[in-house]
């Protein structure tokens, strides 16, 4: 069996700084859409930080939860695609073939996490942002869906390098942009098929649970719930 890439996100460590969101935009050539379009719900953030509050001000408990594609093993987005643009890779990722996408947006409706994004217009970048496009990532044209790839370009680069050096990919060698940029190390990426990888060991934590697991989607991201959420915030 090949690699099964997965992620663990420790909500106790997430400060909601959104560095992951910025890093993701930069790494994956995600176009910004401007304030008006964003207000209309057309912003494309492959990863977003959801904020949940409990209680009344000033006694508020806040939970930040980074939500990105959960790379489900039984992904509802995949079988509904009429052209196989949305499919499952051998390494357990929800692949999206931009060139094969005709824009039915069915995958986005079927996705319970709302982590699929549609190009309502052709992408455009304000100057000088157009000069920082990542040459390793294709730019998506109008009318196609796009989504988090777990930074596939980085995974592939590491795998090719490892193969050239005739070795396996080392645990921790691959870091998607969001993981790399997280100042509190709240996110850990790794191979779930290797029981000794850091991600596998953390995912086994008693705090671990998966987002809306009850839908039967078998997500590959494990959230470590906030312990302080249940106890005293300042303890």
């Amino acid at each position: 069996m090949g690699h099964q890439w997965g992620m663990v996100i420790d909500l106790d460590r997430c400060t909601g700084c959104e560095a992951c969101v910025v890093a993701c935009h930069a790494e994956n050539n995600i176009a910004t859409v401007g304030d008006k379009q964003a207000a209309g719900g057309r912003a494309k953030h492959w990863i977003r930080v959801e904020r949940y509050y409990e209680g009344d001000f000033p006694d508020v408990k806040v939970k930040f939860m980074p939500v990105l594609c959960q790379q489900c093993d039984a992904a509802p987005c995949e079988p509904v695609c009429p052209t196989f643009a949305s499919y499952h890779t051998d390494e357990g990722l929800n692949g999206q073939i931009y060139n094969r996408c005709i824009g039915t947006r069915y995958c986005a409706n079927a996705c319970p996490y709302n982590v699929r994004f549609f190009n309502f217009y052709n992408p455009a970048w304000d100057k000088p942002l157009d000069l920082q496009l990542n040459p390793d990532v294709s730019v998506r044209e109008v009318g196609v869906m796009e989504k988090c790839t777990f930074c596939l370009q980085r995974i592939k680069a590491a795998e090719i390098e490892a193969a050239a050096e005739k070795r396996d990919v080392k645990d921790g060698e691959i870091q998607p942009a969001c993981v790399q940029s997280c100042p509190t190390n709240a996110m850990v990426f790794g191979d779930l098929s290797d029981p000794h990888s850091r991600a596998s060991r953390m995912a086994a934590s008693s705090r671990g649970n998966k987002l809306m697991e009850e839908l039967g989607t078998r997500p590959k991201i494990t959230y470590l719930q906030r312990e302080s959420w249940n106890g005293d915030e300042n303890a």
Binding site: D73, A74, A75, P76, C77, E78, P79, V80, C81, F84, S86, Y87, H88, D90, R218
Partner: peptide, 15 residues
């Protein structure tokens, strides 16, 4: 007949 074995939503190849 698909060039590669396509997995989609965890469903069998010929559902």
């Amino acid at each position: 007949a698909y060039p590669s074995r396509i997995i989609s939503g965890g469903m069998p190849l010929v559902s």
